[in-house]
Amino acid sequence: MKINRTWNQYVVKQENKSLVFNTIRQDSPISRADIAQQVGLNKSTVSSLVSELINEELIGEVGPGESSGGRRPVMLFFNNTAGYSIGIDLGVNYILGVLTDLQGNILEQEQSTFDNLTYEEILVHLKEIIQKLITLAAKSPYGVIGIGVAVPGIVNKEEKILLAPNLNWRNISLKEELENRFNIPVIIENEANAGAYGEVQFGIGKENKDIVYVSVGVGIGVGLILNNQLYKGNHGFSGEMGHMTIDAHGAKCSCGSEGCWELYASEKALLQLAKKNNIYTTDPYNLLDHMIQLAKNNDVVALETFNEISKYLAIGINNIINSFNPEQVIIGNRMSAARQWIEKPLLDSINNQSLWFSQKDLKVDFSSLHTHSNALGMAAFSAEKFLKGSSSGNEEMNIK
C-alpha cells in the first residue's frame, strides 16, 4: 500500500506540474493566483510547482501585472528560448531546414536543392544543413532539444523509413544515423503528417478538428487530423493516397503500382505535360516556377496544363471528401504556389463531383505556411516531445 500511495502521489504531482506549465504556455503572462483559479489547485501547490519550473528555466517572472485591489502580482511567462528545435523537410529534390524557438518562431533557415542523388549523397547535404543550424542556435539552457525530419515515404511506428519510392529508398534507418552523428533526439515522420501538424499548430488549420492536408510536390501525400488527433493507422502507414489508383490502365508508378493519383496531379505530372508540349528547363526543381511565370504571361499551354493538373487533383480530393467527410481540406507544399490558376477549376470539379451532403460546411483552403508546413510541423513535434518530458519530470521515480 505504501508503494502504491507513493507512486500515486508522484503521478499526481507530475500531472499537476504539466497542467500548470501548459497553462503558463497558453496564457502567459499570467499570475500564480490566476493559474490556481484556472486549474483548480490551491495556491501553495501552484507556487511550489512554479518554483520548480523557474529553477528548470522553462518559465520566468516579469511584472508586476495589474492589481485587482491588493498588491500587484508578479506575472509568469513561458521561456520560449529555453531551447531550440530543428525541423527538416526532406523533399525529392530539396532539403529545407528551419531553426525555431519552442513556440515555432523561425529564427534561421537553410535550403539545398539537388537532382537524382543517392541516399549517401543526400545524407551529406542533410548533415551539413543540420550542423549549420546547430551552429546558428544562440546560447540557451537546453540548447537544440530535437531534430525532426519529414520524408516523402512510408514511416513505421519505430520511425524507420520502409519505402520512399520517389527517392528510391527502402528500409532506411535515418533516425539512428542522425542520433549517432549529433547526439540529439531525432523524430522521423511522413511529410504529409508533418504538414498537417504544421498547419494545425501555426497555419490555416487552427480552428478545425477534422482536417485533410494534401501535400502536392513531386509526389502526393495526405495527412489526416481526425477529431483533433493525427491519424496514423495500425502501423503508421495511413495517408499514402498519392498511390491510390485513379486509372486502372495507367502508367507505371515508382511504387510498383499503375495509374496512381500522383502521376496525374503532382509536379511529376507537370514535368510530363511540359515535355509533351515542348516546354523545357535546365533545372527540374525550377519547372514549377517557370510554369507559373508563363501562366502570369497568359501562356495558353501553361494555363491549360494547370487546368488539367487541377482536375486530376480534384478526382483524388473528391474520393477523400466522400471517405472522411472532413471540415477542411488544405492543399499545401510546392504546388500551392500555383493557387491562382488551379483553385477555380479545382473547386468547380469538387462542387460537381463530391456528394452534396459531404460538401455541407466543407472548406477547401490553400496552405498559409506555403512551403514551410512540413519543416514547422517537424520542429513542433520535437518541441512538444521535449516540453512534455520536461514539464512532467525527467527524474526516475525511486520506489522504496
Score class of each variant (00 low, 15 high):
Arg5Met: 12
Tyr10Val: 12
Val20Ile: 15
Asn22Val: 00
Ser28Gln: 04
Gln37Asn: 14
Val39Glu: 01
Ser44Leu: 10
Ser51Leu: 13
Leu53Cys: 11
Leu58Asp: 07
Ile59Cys: 14
Val62Cys: 13
Val74Phe: 02
Met75Ser: 00
Thr81Ser: 14
Ile86Cys: 07
Tyr94Arg: 00
Leu96Asp: 02
Gly97Glu: 06
Leu99Ala: 04
Asp101Lys: 03
Gln103Val: 02
Gly104Thr: 00
Ile106Gly: 01
Ile106Val: 15
Ile106Ala: 01
Glu108Phe: 09
Glu120Asp: 15
Glu128Val: 03
Ala138Asp: 11
Lys139Trp: 02
Lys139Arg: 10
Gly153Leu: 08
Gly153Cys: 09
Asn156Trp: 06
Glu158Thr: 12
Ile161Gly: 13
Leu163Phe: 13
Ser173Pro: 07
Leu174His: 11
Glu177Ser: 15
Leu178Ile: 09
Phe182Ile: 12
Glu189Pro: 14
Gln201Phe: 06
Phe202Ser: 02
Lys206Glu: 11
Val212Phe: 10
Leu230Phe: 03
Lys232Pro: 01
His235Ala: 12
Gly239Arg: 04
Gly242Thr: 00
Asp247Thr: 00
Ala248Gln: 06
His249Asn: 13
Lys252Asn: 10
Glu262His: 12
Glu262Arg: 01
Leu270Lys: 13
Leu273Ile: 07
Ile279Thr: 01
Thr282Cys: 02
Asp289Arg: 05
Asp289Ala: 14
Ile292Ala: 06
Ala295Asp: 07
Val300Lys: 13
Val301Ala: 14
Ala302Arg: 07
Ile309Asp: 03
Tyr312Glu: 10
Leu313Arg: 08
Ile321Asn: 01
Val329Thr: 00
Met335Trp: 03
Arg339Met: 12
Leu346Gln: 03
Gln359Met: 12
Ser367Gly: 04
Ser368Ile: 04
Asn374Leu: 05
Gly377Phe: 06
Leu387Phe: 06
Gly389Val: 01
Ser390Lys: 12
Ser390Val: 00
Ser391Gly: 02
Glu395Asn: 09
Glu396Phe: 09
Ile399His: 00
